[in-house]
Amino acid sequence: MLYAILCYDSEDVVCSWSKEKDAEVMTSLGGVLEKVAQQGRLGPVARLMPTTAATTIRKGAEAMVIDGPFAETKEQLLGFYVIDCANLDEAVETAKDLARASGSAGSFELRPLAVFNPIPPTL
């Protein structure tokens, strides 16, 4: 079974870490990931940019584009895609295509990736 481990923390707190502190935490996490990778169990790893860089697409007859992160607490995170886009316009277009195809309610939140390791270096 593949598991996704989703990271939640206070963005305010994490964004106010010093460069050294950030590097320290990443190195520490990297140590754990390295072991998992050596066992051949590590999939893609991504770090998202802050929610200030987020854009939300509200599904509907005419998809609505809203600045900012997804804020609806009555809906749950069900999945994600990682898509290479030339710019935000292209990302929005792709999300709108998905919105039309899905036919249900809900939202897509677009978050640019700060870090993306598609294939773990040790595999």
């Binding site: 940019m49 802050p50 200030t52 860089a53 600045d67 935000l88 640019p112 700060a114």
Partner: peptide, 16 residues
Amino acid sequence: GKMIAEGLALIDKGLR
């Protein structure tokens, strides 16, 4: 590079 990437994402968003 990290700051640049975030800056580029934000200006892209603003210009839209």
